[in-house]
Design a protein around this nucleic acid. Sequence first.
DNA 1: GTACATGCAAATTATTTGCAACAGG
DNA 2: CCTGTTGCAAATAATTTGCATGTAC
Lengths: 135, 135
Amino acid sequence: MSRPRNTKQRQLILEVLRGTTAHPTADWVYQQVRAVLPNVSLGTIYRNLGVLKEQELIQEVRYPGSQARFDGNPEPHYHFFCLNCDRIEDVPLPFCRDAEEAFRQKLPEYEVMGHNTEFFGLCPDCKDLAERREQ
Amino acid sequence: MSRPRNTKQRQLILEVLRGTTAHPTADWVYQQVRAVLPNVSLGTIYRNLGVLKEQELIQEVRYPGSQARFDGNPEPHYHFFCLNCDRIEDVPLPFCRDAEEAFRQKLPEYEVMGHNTEFFGLCPDCKDLAERREQ
DNA sequence: GTACATGCAAATTATTTGCAACAGG
DNA sequence: CCTGTTGCAAATAATTTGCATGTAC
């Protein structure tokens, strides 16, 4: 276990992630950071995303057919994934752990540490588009 | 929209996935299929996994830090992901759509088509190991 | 001063694709 | 036959790593 340092690269990556709700990819973060530190490398981005994840300051979100996405909010919360435009949004519903409790009751031999839930479907924009196309 | 054919490669890939509960990677499927059809290529595996997904005969499961995994059971159900050994298991709890309904009530401008939930923690084997190590 | 971190580039991993030959319906 | 599919190999995309140098503490 090493103690991570507060490099300006790492601070900036965290700021970038905290400053958006778009759940961006590593490459998007890279572009943003590069606007401030033009010599930063993509390797540094990936290494720091890994460190920040280990420190539980950020989360990684995955969805089939999409590359890794990052979330500056480390608290458990729901995500919505738009099947049409690949957008990921936060869902303003309270995070409910009832299912975890049911799991522990039924299968006590497991250690359940948490769960992720992603809803999927069409975001308002894509739903509108789809409805217009139908007519 | 083209009509897929029943090639022996595709049939076999589906059988392999239906014959395991291990949620294997594309490469594992490749090894299994190759035991029967030695000339099959990995490209064929990936192409067919894509087709089978589109036909909703299989599912793809993703978890941070792990490559794509495939599930021969296309019905919505819960997964458990072991943080220590990367194993994915099915969870024998009834699939509950209450959260989807709550989502629709609160955000009717979205079209919610479903949701995925993965629990995570330690499987029985890894929990035992961890407990023994603690002593 | 001593790790940890960086930039750079090369390496690795995972997945996709072009194409000529093949095969299912 | 016609068109979807295959095997092969090369290409692409995503991510990781080795290493000499730089920098936080």
